[in-house]
Design a protein around this nucleic acid. Sequence first.
DNA 1: ATTCCACGGGAATCGGTGGCAA
DNA 2: TTGCCACCGATTCCCGTGGAAT
Length: 355
Amino acid sequence: MITDRRVFDEDFVPRQLQHRGDEMSVLAWAFHPAARRDPARNVLVHGPSGVGKTVLVRHALERLREGADVPTAFVECMGRSTAAILREILDDLGVDVAANTPTADLEVQLRERVDRPTIVVLDEADGLPELDVLRYLVEADDVAIVPICHDAPDWLARTDDVVRQEFSGPSSRELPLSRYSVNELANILEARAENGLRHDAVDREQLETIADRVAGVARFGIQSLRAAAEIAAEREHTAIRSPDVRDSFERARRRIRAANLDSLPFHHHVLYEIIRRGEVMTSPEIHERYEAIADDVYRGRDQTPIGERSRRNKLQKLRDYDLIDWDGENKYREFWVRDETLQSPIEVNAPVDEM
DNA sequence: ATTCCACGGGAATCGGTGGCAA
DNA sequence: TTGCCACCGATTCCCGTGGAAT
């Protein structure tokens, strides 16, 4: 059924971007001056997750570089320090810096080594730790800044006047990306099917069903199509049938969650299992349970149990990853796992019994 | 009105890594 | 080679905030 697995990979970049023509024009307008050694423009790219913000900007940069030699940097900001981000920008621009260069020196390097129009993309700019990076980039004259974030007003509100000024002038634009319509996403899935599935494995109506069900989130739609093909193959269908599509969403969502859980360290797994085995729990119950089993669970490991404050951070992370959720406030906040059947792959041998 | 307490931002701290200069 | 410095990621410590209980 599946003829090319890579087509469904998370980081697969299709040759042709569909339904983003207007957006590509905006980026071309912003980037193109750099090809003539004129300053490029700032673009604030924003929109909900899973709509292809990163892929879009990467595409635009590739287009630009096909026709011109423009220095560019593309940095993942989430969870990185100011120094780490500056370091990677310099690295992308071909400047060698030592791993322990002080942050202040990095800033000087940035200003001195940028001697012609340059484009710096800050992916996941919601996660920018401080404003320092932005100020440094604003002060470096020839640098155009392209932050990618979820919520533009919110992002701008958290910056300062200097940065806001930079993004409100005529030499900058906001570029909102919306979710795909059912028809658009179905077209995108059709292209994936043509490249990655056997001919006639899926029909248009089924693709539209998937596109509708995933509410325009491309990432989820692509994983669902993949799951539908797998399920059809397991059931020895020669093509995807409606029941296969119906059962694909659960598998896709579950797979995304399992991958998320897999990527987290041990502490998260302990907390996840405590919540999963305890039905619905409140914070004090979770902490109490943690204290009770911590000695046993961590015995023989090189890690030691963590304090309450850290546990709160881990719980937040588990929620960000769609693994748990909660409702309510204070000690009445209740926690539960999103999928009871998803167990931690790590053996957290907490006693199952009494709470 | 006062007390209790979970929350979550931010500063301080710790152990480890890697340049660099004496 | 040795000591020093800056960084990093993870964690703990500290504390203001605000809702609920008393």
